[in-house]
Write a protein that binds this DNA or RNA. Structure first.
Lengths: 263, 263
DNA sequence: CAGTGGTCTAGACCACGCG
DNA sequence: GCGTGGTCTAGACCACTGG
Protein backbone atom coordinates (compact mmCIF):
# COMPACT_ATOMS: atom_id res chain seq x y z
CA UNK A 1 0.00 0.00 0.00
CA UNK A 2 2.64 2.52 -1.04
CA UNK A 3 0.37 5.05 -2.64
CA UNK A 4 -2.97 6.20 -1.30
CA UNK A 5 -5.97 5.39 -3.46
CA UNK A 6 -6.65 8.92 -4.59
CA UNK A 7 -3.11 9.31 -5.91
CA UNK A 8 -3.30 6.05 -7.82
CA UNK A 9 -6.55 7.12 -9.42
CA UNK A 10 -5.08 10.51 -10.27
CA UNK A 11 -2.01 8.84 -11.80
CA UNK A 12 -4.11 6.64 -14.06
CA UNK A 13 -6.15 9.56 -15.27
CA UNK A 14 -3.05 11.73 -15.68
CA UNK A 15 -1.37 9.05 -17.76
CA UNK A 16 -4.39 8.90 -20.04
CA UNK A 17 -4.14 12.65 -20.53
CA UNK A 18 -0.41 13.01 -21.12
CA UNK A 19 -0.33 9.91 -23.33
CA UNK A 20 -3.03 11.38 -25.49
CA UNK A 21 -5.67 8.73 -24.83
CA UNK A 22 -7.72 11.63 -23.51
CA UNK A 23 -7.34 14.73 -25.65
CA UNK A 24 -8.00 18.39 -25.05
CA UNK A 25 -11.72 18.95 -24.68
CA UNK A 26 -12.48 15.30 -23.88
CA UNK A 27 -14.56 14.40 -20.86
CA UNK A 28 -13.30 12.31 -17.98
CA UNK A 29 -15.71 9.69 -16.62
CA UNK A 30 -18.30 11.25 -14.31
CA UNK A 31 -17.84 11.07 -10.55
CA UNK A 32 -20.35 8.21 -10.10
CA UNK A 33 -18.59 6.28 -12.86
CA UNK A 34 -15.23 6.69 -11.15
CA UNK A 35 -16.71 5.64 -7.78
CA UNK A 36 -17.93 2.49 -9.48
CA UNK A 37 -14.79 1.77 -11.47
CA UNK A 38 -12.42 2.13 -8.52
CA UNK A 39 -14.85 1.09 -5.79
CA UNK A 40 -14.24 4.16 -3.65
CA UNK A 41 -16.38 6.84 -2.09
CA UNK A 42 -17.17 10.07 -3.84
CA UNK A 43 -14.81 12.11 -1.67
CA UNK A 44 -11.92 9.92 -2.72
CA UNK A 45 -12.81 10.47 -6.35
CA UNK A 46 -12.88 14.18 -5.68
CA UNK A 47 -9.51 14.08 -3.91
CA UNK A 48 -8.09 12.40 -7.03
CA UNK A 49 -9.58 14.83 -9.51
CA UNK A 50 -8.65 17.78 -7.29
CA UNK A 51 -5.00 16.89 -7.93
CA UNK A 52 -5.51 17.01 -11.68
CA UNK A 53 -7.29 20.33 -11.36
CA UNK A 54 -4.44 21.81 -9.34
CA UNK A 55 -2.03 20.57 -11.98
CA UNK A 56 -4.02 22.53 -14.52
CA UNK A 57 -4.84 19.40 -16.53
CA UNK A 58 -8.63 19.42 -16.26
CA UNK A 59 -11.43 21.67 -15.11
CA UNK A 60 -14.90 20.94 -13.83
CA UNK A 61 -18.06 22.15 -15.51
CA UNK A 62 -21.21 21.94 -13.38
CA UNK A 63 -24.65 21.21 -14.67
CA UNK A 64 -26.16 18.67 -16.99
CA UNK A 65 -23.94 18.25 -20.04
CA UNK A 66 -20.98 19.32 -17.93
CA UNK A 67 -18.33 17.09 -16.43
CA UNK A 68 -14.59 17.13 -16.02
CA UNK A 69 -12.91 18.27 -19.17
CA UNK A 70 -9.29 18.15 -20.30
CA UNK A 71 -8.10 21.73 -20.56
CA UNK A 72 -6.98 23.23 -23.82
CA UNK A 73 -3.75 25.08 -23.95
CA UNK A 74 -3.66 27.67 -26.68
CA UNK A 75 -0.50 29.55 -26.01
CA UNK A 76 -0.04 33.11 -27.13
CA UNK A 77 3.49 34.32 -27.68
CA UNK A 78 4.45 37.76 -26.44
CA UNK A 79 7.73 39.26 -27.60
CA UNK A 80 9.09 41.30 -24.75
CA UNK A 81 11.84 42.86 -26.85
CA UNK A 82 9.81 43.89 -29.85
CA UNK A 83 7.67 46.48 -28.21
CA UNK A 84 10.34 48.77 -26.95
CA UNK A 85 14.02 48.39 -27.74
CA UNK A 86 15.87 50.32 -28.90
CA UNK A 87 13.43 52.59 -30.73
CA UNK A 88 9.94 51.20 -30.42
CA UNK A 89 8.83 50.30 -33.93
CA UNK A 90 5.23 50.67 -32.86
CA UNK A 91 3.44 51.73 -29.74
CA UNK A 92 3.55 49.22 -26.93
CA UNK A 93 -0.16 48.54 -26.81
CA UNK A 94 -0.34 48.23 -30.56
CA UNK A 95 2.60 45.88 -30.51
CA UNK A 96 0.55 43.53 -28.38
CA UNK A 97 -2.46 43.84 -30.64
CA UNK A 98 -0.33 43.23 -33.71
CA UNK A 99 1.10 40.08 -32.22
CA UNK A 100 -2.25 38.68 -31.24
CA UNK A 101 -3.71 39.30 -34.67
CA UNK A 102 -0.64 37.86 -36.35
CA UNK A 103 -1.18 34.67 -34.38
CA UNK A 104 -4.73 34.45 -35.65
CA UNK A 105 -6.70 35.67 -32.67
CA UNK A 106 -9.00 38.55 -31.92
CA UNK A 107 -7.62 41.29 -29.66
CA UNK A 108 -9.31 43.77 -27.34
CA UNK A 109 -8.08 45.99 -24.52
CA UNK A 110 -9.65 47.92 -21.66
CA UNK A 111 -7.89 50.88 -20.08
CA UNK A 112 -8.46 52.34 -16.68
CA UNK A 113 -6.64 54.84 -14.53
CA UNK A 114 -6.14 55.02 -10.79
CA UNK A 115 -4.16 57.04 -8.30
CA UNK A 116 -2.49 54.76 -5.82
CA UNK A 117 -0.54 54.87 -2.63
CA UNK A 118 2.64 52.97 -3.41
CA UNK A 119 3.63 49.84 -1.58
CA UNK A 120 7.26 49.70 -0.61
CA UNK A 121 8.32 47.29 -3.33
CA UNK A 122 6.96 49.53 -6.08
CA UNK A 123 8.34 52.66 -4.43
CA UNK A 124 11.78 51.07 -4.38
CA UNK A 125 11.67 50.29 -8.07
CA UNK A 126 10.65 53.88 -8.87
CA UNK A 127 13.13 55.23 -6.35
CA UNK A 128 10.53 57.39 -4.61
CA UNK A 129 9.46 57.62 -0.98
CA UNK A 130 7.25 54.81 0.27
CA UNK A 131 3.64 55.94 0.84
CA UNK A 132 3.96 58.50 -1.93
CA UNK A 133 1.29 58.44 -4.62
CA UNK A 134 1.62 57.46 -8.24
CA UNK A 135 -0.47 57.11 -11.34
CA UNK A 136 -1.52 53.58 -12.18
CA UNK A 137 -2.57 52.89 -15.73
CA UNK A 138 -4.16 49.48 -16.10
CA UNK A 139 -4.75 47.66 -19.35
CA UNK A 140 -6.71 44.41 -19.34
CA UNK A 141 -6.07 42.44 -22.51
CA UNK A 142 -8.58 40.08 -24.07
CA UNK A 143 -7.90 37.37 -26.63
CA UNK A 144 -10.98 36.07 -28.41
CA UNK A 145 -13.11 37.84 -25.83
CA UNK A 146 -11.44 36.06 -22.92
CA UNK A 147 -9.19 37.98 -20.53
CA UNK A 148 -5.63 36.83 -21.12
CA UNK A 149 -3.28 39.20 -19.37
CA UNK A 150 -3.14 42.62 -17.78
CA UNK A 151 -0.57 45.33 -17.52
CA UNK A 152 -0.30 47.70 -14.56
CA UNK A 153 2.08 50.58 -15.15
CA UNK A 154 3.02 53.04 -12.40
CA UNK A 155 4.38 56.53 -13.09
CA UNK A 156 5.77 58.86 -10.42
CA UNK A 157 3.34 61.67 -9.66
CA UNK A 158 5.70 64.47 -10.62
CA UNK A 159 6.11 62.96 -14.06
CA UNK A 160 2.36 62.68 -14.52
CA UNK A 161 1.95 66.33 -13.58
CA UNK A 162 4.47 67.28 -16.20
CA UNK A 163 2.93 65.04 -18.84
CA UNK A 164 -0.79 65.51 -18.30
CA UNK A 165 -1.85 62.90 -20.85
CA UNK A 166 -0.81 60.27 -18.33
CA UNK A 167 -3.69 61.40 -16.14
CA UNK A 168 -6.29 60.72 -18.79
CA UNK A 169 -8.04 57.36 -18.63
CA UNK A 170 -7.73 56.88 -22.34
CA UNK A 171 -5.49 54.94 -24.63
CA UNK A 172 -2.55 57.06 -25.73
CA UNK A 173 -2.38 56.53 -29.46
CA UNK A 174 1.35 56.62 -29.95
CA UNK A 175 2.01 54.66 -26.77
CA UNK A 176 3.23 55.97 -23.45
CA UNK A 177 6.85 55.02 -24.02
CA UNK A 178 6.98 57.04 -27.20
CA UNK A 179 5.05 59.90 -25.59
CA UNK A 180 7.58 60.08 -22.78
CA UNK A 181 10.37 60.02 -25.32
CA UNK A 182 8.86 62.96 -27.21
CA UNK A 183 8.75 64.95 -23.99
CA UNK A 184 12.38 64.45 -23.14
CA UNK A 185 12.11 61.30 -21.03
CA UNK A 186 13.49 58.70 -23.37
CA UNK A 187 13.96 55.32 -21.77
CA UNK A 188 17.40 53.95 -22.47
CA UNK A 189 17.56 50.98 -20.15
CA UNK A 190 15.21 48.33 -18.82
CA UNK A 191 15.38 46.08 -15.79
CA UNK A 192 13.31 42.94 -16.36
CA UNK A 193 12.18 40.48 -13.69
CA UNK A 194 10.41 37.20 -14.38
CA UNK A 195 8.44 35.38 -11.68
CA UNK A 196 5.96 32.54 -11.42
CA UNK A 197 3.39 32.20 -8.67
CA UNK A 198 -0.23 31.39 -7.94
CA UNK A 199 -2.74 34.18 -8.59
CA UNK A 200 -4.14 36.46 -5.93
CA UNK A 201 -7.94 36.45 -5.57
CA UNK A 202 -8.01 39.80 -7.37
CA UNK A 203 -6.14 38.37 -10.34
CA UNK A 204 -8.39 35.35 -10.37
CA UNK A 205 -11.36 37.67 -10.77
CA UNK A 206 -9.82 40.08 -13.26
CA UNK A 207 -8.55 37.34 -15.54
CA UNK A 208 -11.30 34.80 -14.93
CA UNK A 209 -8.79 32.12 -14.02
CA UNK A 210 -9.87 28.54 -13.42
CA UNK A 211 -8.28 26.73 -10.46
CA UNK A 212 -4.83 25.36 -11.20
CA UNK A 213 -3.87 28.33 -13.35
CA UNK A 214 -0.52 29.95 -12.60
CA UNK A 215 0.63 33.52 -13.11
CA UNK A 216 3.64 34.46 -15.22
CA UNK A 217 4.76 37.85 -13.98
CA UNK A 218 7.03 40.10 -15.98
CA UNK A 219 8.10 43.28 -14.21
CA UNK A 220 9.80 45.88 -16.36
CA UNK A 221 11.35 48.98 -14.84
CA UNK A 222 12.15 51.65 -17.43
CA UNK A 223 15.01 54.11 -16.92
CA UNK A 224 15.92 57.34 -18.64
CA UNK A 225 19.52 58.44 -18.36
CA UNK A 226 18.52 60.19 -15.15
CA UNK A 227 16.23 57.85 -13.23
CA UNK A 228 13.49 55.22 -13.30
CA UNK A 229 10.32 56.64 -14.85
CA UNK A 230 7.90 53.76 -14.78
CA UNK A 231 7.41 50.20 -13.67
CA UNK A 232 5.09 47.81 -15.51
CA UNK A 233 3.64 44.65 -14.02
CA UNK A 234 2.67 42.33 -16.85
CA UNK A 235 0.43 39.68 -15.37
CA UNK A 236 -0.03 36.74 -17.73
CA UNK A 237 -2.37 33.81 -17.26
CA UNK A 238 0.18 31.00 -17.30
CA UNK A 239 -1.99 28.61 -19.28
CA UNK A 240 -2.42 30.95 -22.22
CA UNK A 241 0.82 32.91 -22.59
CA UNK A 242 4.53 32.70 -23.05
CA UNK A 243 7.12 35.44 -23.31
CA UNK A 244 9.86 35.33 -25.90
CA UNK A 245 13.01 37.40 -26.24
CA UNK A 246 16.04 37.10 -28.46
CA UNK A 247 19.65 38.09 -28.03
CA UNK A 248 22.35 38.46 -30.62
CA UNK A 249 21.98 38.03 -34.34
CA UNK A 250 18.28 37.62 -35.04
CA UNK A 251 18.92 36.64 -38.65
CA UNK A 252 20.32 33.27 -37.64
CA UNK A 253 17.27 32.59 -35.56
CA UNK A 254 14.94 33.70 -38.33
CA UNK A 255 16.41 31.07 -40.62
CA UNK A 256 15.07 28.38 -38.31
CA UNK A 257 12.09 30.27 -36.91
CA UNK A 258 10.51 32.18 -39.76
CA UNK A 259 8.04 33.87 -37.45
CA UNK A 260 10.97 35.71 -35.87
CA UNK A 261 11.98 37.43 -39.08
CA UNK A 262 12.75 41.10 -38.41
CA UNK A 263 10.20 43.30 -40.15
CA UNK B 1 -25.05 33.35 1.63
CA UNK B 2 -22.96 34.66 -1.23
CA UNK B 3 -19.79 32.81 -0.39
CA UNK B 4 -19.56 29.20 0.74
CA UNK B 5 -18.24 28.69 4.23
CA UNK B 6 -14.90 27.26 3.26
CA UNK B 7 -14.12 30.28 1.10
CA UNK B 8 -15.03 32.67 3.88
CA UNK B 9 -12.77 30.83 6.28
CA UNK B 10 -9.98 30.82 3.71
CA UNK B 11 -10.44 34.56 3.15
CA UNK B 12 -10.14 35.34 6.85
CA UNK B 13 -6.99 33.31 7.18
CA UNK B 14 -5.56 34.71 3.95
CA UNK B 15 -6.18 38.25 5.17
CA UNK B 16 -4.31 37.50 8.36
CA UNK B 17 -1.37 36.27 6.31
CA UNK B 18 -1.17 39.05 3.73
CA UNK B 19 -1.80 41.72 6.36
CA UNK B 20 1.09 40.39 8.39
CA UNK B 21 -0.92 39.36 11.44
CA UNK B 22 0.43 35.91 10.70
CA UNK B 23 4.05 35.98 9.64
CA UNK B 24 6.28 33.56 7.82
CA UNK B 25 6.86 30.51 9.95
CA UNK B 26 3.82 31.16 12.17
CA UNK B 27 1.32 28.40 12.84
CA UNK B 28 -2.34 28.61 11.86
CA UNK B 29 -4.82 27.32 14.44
CA UNK B 30 -5.06 23.53 14.39
CA UNK B 31 -7.89 21.82 12.55
CA UNK B 32 -9.91 21.10 15.71
CA UNK B 33 -9.52 24.75 16.74
CA UNK B 34 -10.83 25.93 13.38
CA UNK B 35 -13.77 23.50 13.57
CA UNK B 36 -14.63 25.01 16.92
CA UNK B 37 -14.09 28.63 15.96
CA UNK B 38 -16.20 28.48 12.79
CA UNK B 39 -18.58 25.73 13.91
CA UNK B 40 -18.00 23.56 10.84
CA UNK B 41 -16.97 19.99 10.19
CA UNK B 42 -13.41 18.98 9.71
CA UNK B 43 -13.77 18.51 5.95
CA UNK B 44 -14.90 22.10 5.58
CA UNK B 45 -11.85 23.24 7.48
CA UNK B 46 -9.72 21.17 5.17
CA UNK B 47 -11.44 22.58 2.07
CA UNK B 48 -10.58 26.03 3.36
CA UNK B 49 -6.95 25.32 4.14
CA UNK B 50 -6.57 23.40 0.86
CA UNK B 51 -7.19 26.72 -0.92
CA UNK B 52 -4.40 28.41 0.99
CA UNK B 53 -2.08 25.51 0.25
CA UNK B 54 -2.82 25.71 -3.46
CA UNK B 55 -2.12 29.42 -3.33
CA UNK B 56 1.27 28.60 -1.93
CA UNK B 57 0.61 30.53 1.30
CA UNK B 58 0.90 27.73 3.84
CA UNK B 59 1.98 24.11 4.06
CA UNK B 60 0.99 21.31 6.38
CA UNK B 61 3.38 19.50 8.68
CA UNK B 62 2.10 16.21 10.12
CA UNK B 63 2.89 14.87 13.53
CA UNK B 64 2.91 16.24 17.00
CA UNK B 65 4.45 19.70 17.04
CA UNK B 66 3.42 20.10 13.40
CA UNK B 67 0.51 22.09 12.10
CA UNK B 68 -0.19 24.45 9.25
CA UNK B 69 2.63 26.88 8.77
CA UNK B 70 2.93 30.11 6.78
CA UNK B 71 5.46 29.52 4.03
CA UNK B 72 8.68 31.46 3.81
CA UNK B 73 9.64 33.02 0.54
CA UNK B 74 13.37 33.47 0.15
CA UNK B 75 13.80 34.46 -3.44
CA UNK B 76 17.00 33.84 -5.28
CA UNK B 77 17.79 36.06 -8.24
CA UNK B 78 19.18 34.50 -11.36
CA UNK B 79 20.66 36.77 -14.04
CA UNK B 80 19.90 35.18 -17.38
CA UNK B 81 22.10 37.59 -19.31
CA UNK B 82 25.22 37.42 -17.18
CA UNK B 83 26.17 33.87 -17.83
CA UNK B 84 26.48 33.95 -21.56
CA UNK B 85 26.34 37.09 -23.64
CA UNK B 86 28.31 38.15 -25.52
CA UNK B 87 31.49 36.52 -24.23
CA UNK B 88 30.70 34.57 -21.09
CA UNK B 89 32.69 36.19 -18.29
CA UNK B 90 32.60 32.92 -16.39
CA UNK B 91 31.35 29.44 -17.05
CA UNK B 92 27.62 29.03 -16.94
CA UNK B 93 27.52 26.68 -13.99
CA UNK B 94 30.00 28.80 -12.09
CA UNK B 95 27.97 31.88 -12.86
CA UNK B 96 25.09 30.31 -11.03
CA UNK B 97 27.27 29.33 -8.09
CA UNK B 98 28.74 32.80 -7.93
CA UNK B 99 25.32 34.38 -7.84
CA UNK B 100 24.08 32.12 -5.08
CA UNK B 101 27.10 32.74 -2.93
CA UNK B 102 26.90 36.49 -3.56
CA UNK B 103 23.36 36.42 -2.24
CA UNK B 104 24.54 34.76 0.94
CA UNK B 105 23.52 31.16 0.38
CA UNK B 106 25.29 27.86 0.06
CA UNK B 107 25.43 26.32 -3.43
CA UNK B 108 25.74 22.73 -4.62
CA UNK B 109 25.13 21.01 -7.95
CA UNK B 110 24.65 17.45 -9.16
CA UNK B 111 25.36 16.47 -12.75
CA UNK B 112 24.04 13.52 -14.65
CA UNK B 113 24.06 12.46 -18.26
CA UNK B 114 21.45 10.66 -20.31
CA UNK B 115 20.85 9.74 -23.93
CA UNK B 116 17.30 10.53 -24.89
CA UNK B 117 14.88 10.04 -27.71
CA UNK B 118 13.73 13.54 -28.54
CA UNK B 119 10.13 14.58 -28.27
CA UNK B 120 8.89 16.63 -31.18
CA UNK B 121 9.02 19.99 -29.40
CA UNK B 122 12.69 19.58 -28.54
CA UNK B 123 13.53 18.22 -31.97
CA UNK B 124 11.96 21.29 -33.52
CA UNK B 125 14.05 23.63 -31.42
CA UNK B 126 17.24 21.77 -32.38
CA UNK B 127 16.07 21.48 -35.99
CA UNK B 128 16.67 17.72 -36.09
CA UNK B 129 14.38 14.85 -37.03
CA UNK B 130 11.81 13.86 -34.41
CA UNK B 131 12.63 10.54 -32.74
CA UNK B 132 16.33 11.15 -33.21
CA UNK B 133 18.53 10.84 -30.15
CA UNK B 134 20.39 13.53 -28.28
CA UNK B 135 22.60 13.97 -25.27
CA UNK B 136 20.86 15.28 -22.19
CA UNK B 137 23.04 16.85 -19.52
CA UNK B 138 21.13 17.46 -16.33
CA UNK B 139 22.24 19.69 -13.48
CA UNK B 140 20.21 19.77 -10.29
CA UNK B 141 21.00 22.87 -8.26
CA UNK B 142 20.77 23.06 -4.49
CA UNK B 143 20.60 26.17 -2.34
CA UNK B 144 21.34 25.61 1.33
CA UNK B 145 21.01 21.90 0.75
CA UNK B 146 17.51 22.22 -0.68
CA UNK B 147 16.87 21.58 -4.39
CA UNK B 148 16.07 24.89 -6.02
CA UNK B 149 16.17 24.48 -9.76
CA UNK B 150 17.41 22.18 -12.45
CA UNK B 151 18.79 22.61 -15.92
CA UNK B 152 18.31 20.08 -18.71
CA UNK B 153 20.44 20.79 -21.76
CA UNK B 154 20.09 18.82 -24.99
CA UNK B 155 22.84 18.60 -27.62
CA UNK B 156 22.39 17.03 -31.05
CA UNK B 157 24.12 13.65 -31.25
CA UNK B 158 26.44 14.59 -34.08
CA UNK B 159 27.78 17.48 -32.05
CA UNK B 160 28.38 15.26 -29.04
CA UNK B 161 30.30 12.82 -31.21
CA UNK B 162 32.51 15.63 -32.39
CA UNK B 163 33.00 17.03 -28.90
CA UNK B 164 33.39 13.93 -26.76
CA UNK B 165 33.51 15.79 -23.47
CA UNK B 166 29.77 16.26 -23.79
CA UNK B 167 29.38 12.51 -23.33
CA UNK B 168 31.09 12.51 -19.97
CA UNK B 169 28.84 12.67 -16.92
CA UNK B 170 31.10 15.20 -15.26
CA UNK B 171 31.08 18.91 -14.79
CA UNK B 172 32.96 20.65 -17.58
CA UNK B 173 35.23 23.10 -15.79
CA UNK B 174 35.19 25.94 -18.29
CA UNK B 175 31.49 25.49 -19.01
CA UNK B 176 29.92 23.87 -22.03
CA UNK B 177 29.20 27.14 -23.81
CA UNK B 178 32.85 28.11 -23.68
CA UNK B 179 33.94 24.60 -24.61
CA UNK B 180 31.75 24.69 -27.71
CA UNK B 181 33.16 28.10 -28.55
CA UNK B 182 36.72 26.81 -28.33
CA UNK B 183 35.87 24.03 -30.76
CA UNK B 184 34.47 26.30 -33.40
CA UNK B 185 30.82 26.33 -32.33
CA UNK B 186 30.49 29.76 -30.85
CA UNK B 187 26.93 30.68 -29.98
CA UNK B 188 26.06 34.08 -31.35
CA UNK B 189 22.31 34.21 -30.77
CA UNK B 190 19.83 33.01 -28.19
CA UNK B 191 16.11 32.41 -28.35
CA UNK B 192 14.59 32.69 -24.87
CA UNK B 193 11.13 31.50 -23.84
CA UNK B 194 9.54 32.11 -20.44
CA UNK B 195 6.63 30.03 -19.19
CA UNK B 196 4.78 29.42 -15.96
CA UNK B 197 2.93 26.23 -15.13
CA UNK B 198 2.31 23.66 -12.43
CA UNK B 199 5.01 21.03 -11.94
CA UNK B 200 4.90 17.54 -13.38
CA UNK B 201 5.09 14.70 -10.84
CA UNK B 202 8.72 14.17 -11.90
CA UNK B 203 9.59 17.78 -11.16
CA UNK B 204 7.77 17.57 -7.85
CA UNK B 205 10.07 14.70 -6.88
CA UNK B 206 13.31 16.10 -8.26
CA UNK B 207 12.85 19.49 -6.65
CA UNK B 208 11.00 18.35 -3.53
CA UNK B 209 8.17 20.78 -4.19
CA UNK B 210 5.40 21.27 -1.66
CA UNK B 211 1.84 21.52 -3.04
CA UNK B 212 1.00 24.95 -4.37
CA UNK B 213 4.46 25.53 -5.81
CA UNK B 214 4.62 26.72 -9.41
CA UNK B 215 7.33 26.22 -12.01
CA UNK B 216 9.08 29.10 -13.76
CA UNK B 217 10.41 27.67 -17.00
CA UNK B 218 13.13 29.38 -19.01
CA UNK B 219 13.95 27.71 -22.32
CA UNK B 220 17.07 28.94 -24.05
CA UNK B 221 17.97 27.78 -27.54
CA UNK B 222 21.55 28.63 -28.50
CA UNK B 223 22.54 29.23 -32.12
CA UNK B 224 25.89 29.39 -33.85
CA UNK B 225 26.01 31.26 -37.13
CA UNK B 226 25.07 27.98 -38.79
CA UNK B 227 22.38 26.34 -36.66
CA UNK B 228 20.95 25.64 -33.22
CA UNK B 229 23.43 23.67 -31.13
CA UNK B 230 21.66 23.22 -27.83
CA UNK B 231 18.47 23.84 -25.94
CA UNK B 232 18.40 24.32 -22.18
CA UNK B 233 15.33 23.88 -20.01
CA UNK B 234 15.83 25.82 -16.82
CA UNK B 235 13.22 24.61 -14.36
CA UNK B 236 12.91 26.93 -11.37
CA UNK B 237 10.82 26.34 -8.27
CA UNK B 238 8.59 29.40 -8.47
CA UNK B 239 8.60 30.06 -4.75
CA UNK B 240 12.35 30.37 -4.52
CA UNK B 241 13.57 31.96 -7.74
CA UNK B 242 13.27 34.90 -10.04
CA UNK B 243 15.04 35.63 -13.31
CA UNK B 244 16.46 39.05 -14.07
CA UNK B 245 17.74 40.52 -17.31
CA UNK B 246 18.72 44.01 -18.32
CA UNK B 247 18.65 45.85 -21.62
CA UNK B 248 20.40 49.02 -22.62
CA UNK B 249 22.78 51.04 -20.52
CA UNK B 250 23.46 49.06 -17.37
CA UNK B 251 25.25 51.97 -15.70
CA UNK B 252 22.00 53.86 -15.25
CA UNK B 253 20.44 50.85 -13.59
CA UNK B 254 23.47 50.32 -11.38
CA UNK B 255 23.05 53.80 -9.97
CA UNK B 256 19.72 52.76 -8.48
CA UNK B 257 20.42 49.05 -8.05
CA UNK B 258 23.98 48.73 -6.76
CA UNK B 259 23.83 44.95 -6.99
CA UNK B 260 23.62 45.28 -10.77
CA UNK B 261 26.96 47.03 -11.07
CA UNK B 262 28.95 45.58 -13.99
CA UNK B 263 32.03 43.80 -12.75
C1' DC C 1 1.70 8.71 24.84
C1' DA C 2 -0.88 12.33 22.92
C1' DG C 3 -1.86 15.37 19.31
C1' DT C 4 -0.97 16.62 14.66
C1' DG C 5 -2.42 16.07 9.89
C1' DG C 6 -3.53 12.01 6.04
C1' DT C 7 -6.92 9.23 4.21
C1' DC C 8 -11.47 7.38 3.60
C1' DT C 9 -16.49 6.33 4.15
C1' DA C 10 -21.55 7.02 3.47
C1' DG C 11 -24.51 9.64 3.52
C1' DA C 12 -27.16 14.64 2.61
C1' DC C 13 -28.97 18.73 0.17
C1' DC C 14 -28.10 22.38 -3.26
C1' DA C 15 -27.21 25.15 -7.80
C1' DC C 16 -26.87 24.94 -12.32
C1' DG C 17 -27.97 24.15 -17.13
C1' DC C 18 -28.97 21.05 -21.17
C1' DG C 19 -32.67 18.54 -23.31
C1' DG D 1 -36.71 16.94 -15.29
C1' DC D 2 -32.67 15.12 -14.12
C1' DG D 3 -27.79 14.45 -14.15
C1' DT D 4 -23.77 17.12 -13.50
C1' DG D 5 -20.58 18.97 -10.04
C1' DG D 6 -20.59 22.15 -5.34
C1' DT D 7 -20.86 22.05 -0.59
C1' DC D 8 -21.21 20.02 3.91
C1' DT D 9 -21.72 16.68 7.81
C1' DA D 10 -20.18 13.21 11.29
C1' DG D 11 -18.02 9.98 11.91
C1' DA D 12 -13.61 6.39 11.41
C1' DC D 13 -8.81 4.63 11.47
C1' DC D 14 -4.00 5.52 10.35
C1' DA D 15 1.06 7.39 10.30
C1' DC D 16 4.03 10.23 12.11
C1' DT D 17 6.64 12.62 15.64
C1' DG D 18 7.68 15.55 19.76
C1' DG D 19 7.67 15.38 24.77
Amino acid sequence: MGQPKYRQIASELRDQIVSGALREGDRLPTEPQLEERYDVSRNTVRDATALLINEGLVHRVPGRGGGMIVRRKAILTFHAHRAEMPAPPTAEADAWRTEVVAQGYEAAQEFSLMIRLLSSDIAERLHVEPDSVAVLRRCVRYVNGQPSSLQDTYYPMDLAEEIRELLSPKDIPQGTTRLLGERGHEQTAYYDEYLSRMPTPEETNLLGLPPGTTILLHIRTGYTEQRPVRVSFNVFAGDRNQIVTTHGDVRVIARFRPEEAPE
